[in-house]
Design a protein around this nucleic acid. Structure first.
Lengths: 140, 140
DNA sequence: GTTCCTGCAAAAGCTTTGCAGAAGA
DNA sequence: TCTTCTGCAAAGCTTTTGCAGGAAC
């Protein structure tokens, strides 16, 4: 999703565009690094010093409800957020903790046992070691 | 994994088989309902009234480390546990909250962008409406 | 003027940690 | 005896809730 379209998207969905919400969306759109609530909060607090974490939670909740943002639960101790783009999977390096996107054709794989299930959301989470960390490990 | 093999598995991995651990494993093996820590705790407390939740956490942590149990993070506000069997996906009904297993051939789907990544763990989480809830909804 | 949004403080949950006593090898 | 395990209490985190003031329409 391009940032220019976001304002329109918000108006379509009856989400008021406050300065806080604008900054949070801007951050998500320009830094597609799957941030945690804390990362978002710390970064935006630099420009809005009075920002409250409650507002970050409120805004993210609203954006998720309206389908503009997606929750990433790749780990059990941290919730991350991702602005919605095309379908893609998430890979988390267990060494450097970075989350990488990868392309996956969600319609391509053969599943079995979900006849008559209405599928509304698909999440693919992989874990392992990224190429960079694998290389460093080899040297040791 | 069959329950009879679990004791052997534990010995192979140097996990002492205390009564608490036996009961937790028994519960996981016989009730493959992807329980939360709380569900496990409440159920086993019936037979071990002095059971502490810390023990449930400790045991699950150990079992996950040793690869006998798998963590399910389909939602951000609850961690569930699953005794490891063959690869399968998890579908959560957003209405009745039940988690269903489904078969998926994890090698079958075409991914793109993970060359040279060492993949150690794959999780597939779907959400939607199960057939039973879909039927009830139609009637309304 | 009414509705919605923000942000502080407090509360609520879940999970981890420290530690002493008990159990097991 | 030495190590590991259990379970209580406390601490630590993340997230939610209540509420009063402020902003937007």
């Amino acid at each position: 999703m391009r940032f220019e379209n976001l304002e329109k998207e918000l108006k379509n969905r009856n989400i008021n565009l406050s300065y806080q919400r604008l900054k949070i969306l801007e951050y998500l759109a320009h830094n597609q690094c799957h941030p945690t609530v804390d990362q978002i909060f710390i970064n935006i607090q630099k420009s809005i010093t009075t920002l409250s974490k409650t507002t970050v939670y409120n805004t993210l909740k609203k954006l998720v409800e309206e389908g503009l943002v997606r929750v990433i639960n790749i780990e059990d101790n941290e919730t991350r957020y991702d602005i919605v783009t095309e379908d893609h999977g998430h890979f988390k390096c267990e060494n450097c903790k970075t989350i990488f996107d990868f392309n996956v054709n969600l319609d391509s794989f053969s599943i079995n046992g979900l006849d008559n299930f209405r599928i509304l959301d698909k999440n693919i989470y992989f874990k392992g070691i990224c190429p960079e960390c694998a290389q460093v490990n080899e040297k040791n």
